[in-house]
Write a protein that binds this DNA or RNA. Structure first.
Lengths: 204, 204
DNA sequence: TCTTTTGCATTGCAGTTGCAACGTAACCAA
DNA sequence: TTGGTTACGTTGCAACTGCAATGCAAAAGA
């Protein structure tokens, strides 16, 4: 019945253009026409795939998170089987930091959406589950390290997981603002992992 | 020669209105007319005190930072003379977290400006010094605690200071997004202080 | 073949935006 | 008093906004 067009693909094409605009000029520069031009399509087509601007924004927000999720999944898969909790956590968190231009672009968009959702609580609800899942995973890894005897058992895994995610988020913000250099951020993250999991032992 | 009007006061009046608009609807809702209405003045007057919108935004950004600086100064002053590094740091960082509605409003504005400056690097430059100063202060307090023997000397004060600020920033972001409860954030912050300065001893 | 659905482009519109221009009233120095 | 400066208020405008409406070609079913 349809004209054999992949809806999801078109929507992603548009969302990608939106993210490019947002990464360069901020979310306030995102308009139907602007996005359409960036995507190289007519503004009528954008309207065809998103009935309202808000619908487009919400979809783009979900794409942003798919992006970072895919990034992490890929990096973790490259670690091979059964990496140590420390390696796993470091890989994950480093991957989420805006350290190169590609991730900086994504980070700027994510930051813009963060401010966007802070004012639209209904849109933000979907993100809570994601954070909760990530949190549980990190806490689980810390528990694993503790069980293996490499980590100090006096640290509370849940609290430490909250702190670890917060430090990643905070470092990301400071990196985007240009306040810290990548080296500084990486050193701080490594130091935090040392604090939580115990000092690193090169001869693991 | 002037008509005896305090320029700075008028500008702050307008900036306050801007912050109210931004806290409620985001920075994208900030327009000359909107701000003027919120401030209860004519849009012509806003234009009289700010020749361009960008000038208004930049000024408001500086007011936001004066706000949080004043907040911290007041809270620290209330501690009396020579508070312990731990108390001082905790007070400072807690004061910067969006834990009540007043600070949440400020936090939303700060977050919006964070995204704003991330796309306008020239405006962001002024903030670097502030972060650097804060960082040096925190590192100094950690060094003090180490010298007093209460803190583990194996932790690097500079790295730990970066981490502490980042964790504060990250917790703030998650709090604004509603991902964490104030209790969770406070517990995570306390745990981090324990990690950096050593476990708290009630009978100090 | 005819009809219906889908994909997309164009046009139009009411509302909003930043900003310039102009007006006027109050004040101050001469 | 005169002239100049300051402090606004009002109006206007070109550009842009989201969105509805309309048109039309291609494809799929009848």
């Amino acid at each position: 019945m349809p004209k054999r067009v992949d809806h999801r693909e078109r929507r992603k094409l548009i969302a990608d253009a939106l993210m490019r605009v947002a990464a360069e000029h901020g979310l306030e520069a995102v308009s139907l026409r602007h996005v359409a031009t960036e995507a190289g399509v007519s503004s009528g087509m954008v309207q065809h795939y998103f009935r309202t601007k808000d619908e487009m924004m919400t979809f783009a927000l979900s794409v942003v998170h798919e992006h970072s999720e895919a990034r992490v999944t890929r990096a973790v898969a490259a670690l091979g089987d059964a990496p140590s909790p420390r390696t796993l956590l470091r890989t994950m968190l480093v991957e989420l930091l805006p350290l190169d231009e590609s991730r900086r672009a994504d980070g700027r968009v994510a930051l813009a959406f963060l401010a966007y959702t802070a004012v639209r609580p209904t849109v933000a609800a979907a993100l809570h589950q994601e954070t909760a899942g990530l949190l549980a995973f990190v806490a689980g890894q810390i528990r694993l390290a503790q069980a293996a005897g490499t980590a100090d058992r006096r640290v509370d895994p849940d609290r430490a997981a909250v702190g670890l995610l917060a430090i990643m988020e905070g470092l990301g913000v400071y990196l985007l603002g240009g306040h810290y250099s990548p080296e500084t951020a990486l050193a701080a993250l490594a130091a935090q992992l040392d604090l939580v999991l115990g000092p690193d032992e090169p001869g693991k």
